[in-house]
Amino acid sequence: MSEAILSLRNINKSFGAVHVLRGVDLDIYPGQVTALVGDNGAGKSTLIKCIAGIYTPDSGEYHFDGKPVTVNGPRDATALGIEVVYQDLALCDNLDIVHNLFLGREKKKGVTLDEASMEQLARQTLDGLSVRTVKSIRQTVASLSGGQRQTVAIARAVLWNNKVVILDEPTAALGVSQTEQVLNLVRRLADAGIAVVLISHNLVDVFEVADNVAALYLGTMAAQVKLNEVSRNQVIELITTGKSAGVTNIGANK
């Protein structure tokens, strides 16, 4: 297995008296989809927010590209090349696809917006992801289906050559065929060499696209395992009880 691009070691995070993350380890590899699973309240969202710099861990190590780094805010994470696609999509309904892709990072010519080159780049990015469902990239996001919106949100993460893309339940609100489209897109991201983290409640999705799975249980990392070495029941055991016989932890050398 190649070197991890992002490694967390012994991450702790408390909110007042509530100890949400207890010594969590996680490794994320380029070109692979790492599924992050766990029951409600296991700490998935908190862990993601620690990675994205929204929360600062109380203790623990954060390694990026083999080097220890400190991430004190979303800007630091963005600077490293980490992008989160949130569940409640961070898109503006009243703007078109190009505007949304470049929101906050518009290309400019002097003081004016360089619409032509933004549109070209947007078109290239969507083509690169083999997105063929969008009729016009100048239509407003309000007119898109759930799957298309998810596609735009993901394309936005890709546009900036990010190294790590974290997807928070990207298929939660989607129908069958749209889920399929998005999962295909997730796979293509990983195949393009991006390290993808997929948070999901849906084990069918996880087994379809993920390479390895990290299971959180009550704030601890139950195990991070290669997906082809475990059965679905073992993953369910990890999620519900925090342990399962015969799984090989690849995450940390415990």
Binding site: P74, T78, A90, N94, L95, L103, G104
Partner: peptide
């Protein structure tokens, strides 16, 4: 259009 989205976009 979406204050939260704008904030997250920096």
């Amino acid at each position: 259009g979406n204050t939260e989205a704008a904030r997250r976009s920096g």
